[in-house]
């Protein structure tokens, strides 16, 4: 059964074109000069009950906008949208009973009150009966050892602790669908893995349908079978995470910084690297600020260590960083036929 269905969903924002300066601000008071931002255009998607779907895309791709529409807070400009068989913007208050939402940058807990109070308040807002409340609190207890924090006001929690509380709180009323918009934003590796653990366990236990957005592919790899990649408001990939991982899992970004005196030699560096490695297509190069150069390397073809050795041998490398491939790069690769 499709729990969530989007058909050619679009959302266009009307934005006032602002003029500069004080006189511009005055002029804007009377301006009717609007520009349309197509945040989401013709997005179609179907999500089955119990699925966890990873929803990714570069900044501004339209992920949060889509989530806001699915929660019924924003009204789509056009297209069809049903969640749990209902149109989210109709009967809003009632639909909210069946969904849970976490926005990583905000909290839905009561900032000034002790943690446990937020759970009690949510229990009453969502009319959760005492026995399911107790049952859920016990499950949460086992997952995240909340007790020590019960009497602490939410504002004293660390970002990671607050996020854990926010996430379990969104499960308190046993919703059918949960939307998690960047639940791992700004967290370190160890708390991230705890959060993944919590989401995974609760999903398995309660068969909750979950839509998760993130900029960290490893979140998706740990949690989802299916990934939907969007860019500029439309789907560019919808399929198994495995395919994406096997395509890009071997990709690493090698970042190298050269001292200022060498900035000029960048073009030359590019030519020499490309000349040295015969599988040139496996390495792409990009200049960044302050002398940083980013090499995206497909390790199935060329070993990152070989590239590093080669460069280190010929150039006075100042600093290096190695990272997993970013979502932006994947999107770019897909456009260039990477997943065709």
């Amino acid at each position: 059964m499709a729990m969530i269905r989007l058909e050619n969903l679009s959302k266009h924002y009307k934005v006032l074109n602002r003029s500069e300066g004080l006189s511009g601000a005055l002029k804007d008071l009377f301006s009717r000069d609007y520009r349309i931002v197509k945040a989401v255009s013709d997005l179609s998607l179907e999500v089955n009950a119990g699925e966890i779907v990873g929803f990714v895309g570069p900044n501004g791709a339209g992920k949060s906008t889509t989530i806001k529409m699915m929660t019924g807070v924003l009204k789509p400009t056009s297209g069809l949208l049903t969640v749990n068989g209902r149109i989210p913007t109709k009967n809003r208050a009632q639909n909210m009973q069946e969904i849970g939402v976490v926005f990583g940058q905000r909290t839905q807990l009561w900032w000034d009150l002790p943690v446990i109070e937020s759970f009690k308040i949510l229990r009453q807002i969502y009319r959760v009966d005492q026995s399911s409340y107790n049952e859920n609190m016990n499950i949460f207890e086992e997952l995240i050892d909340l007790k020590a924090l019960y009497s602490t006001p939410v504002r004293y929690l660390s970002l990671g602790q607050r996020m854990l509380c926010d996430i379990v709180a969104s499960f308190l009323h046993n919703p059918k669908v949960i939307f998690l918009d960047e639940p791992t934003i700004g967290l370190d590796i160890s708390i991230k893995s705890r959060i993944r653990e919590v989401i995974k366990t609760l999903n398995e236990h309660k068969q909750t349908t979950i839509i998760l957005t993130t900029h960290d592919l490893s979140d998706i790899e740990a949690l989802c079978k299916r990934i939907v990649i969007i860019d500029k408001g439309t789907t560019v990939y919808d399929g198994s995470i495995q395919k994406v991982s096997s395509m890009f899992g071997a990709h690493r970004t090698l970042k190298i910084q050269l001292p200022p005196a060498e900035y000029l030699a960048l073009d030359q560096l590019a030519t020499s690297v490309n000349g040295h490695f015969s599988q040139a297509s496996a390495i792409t190069m990009e200049q960044s600020e302050e002398g940083w150069i980013h090499f995206t390397i497909n390790q199935d073809e060329v070993h990152l260590m070989d590239v590093l050795n080669y460069i280190g041998h010929h150039y006075p490398v100042h600093d290096i960083k190695i990272e997993e491939i970013s979502i932006d790069k994947i999107v770019k690769n897909i456009y260039e036929g990477g997943l065709a």
Binding site: T71, M96, F103, Q108, Y126
Partner: peptide
């Protein structure tokens, strides 16, 4: 600041 959404996602008027 956008926090308005936390009120709108509750089953409340």
């Amino acid at each position: 600041n956008g926090d308005i959404i936390t009120s709108f996602i509750k089953p409340l008027d």
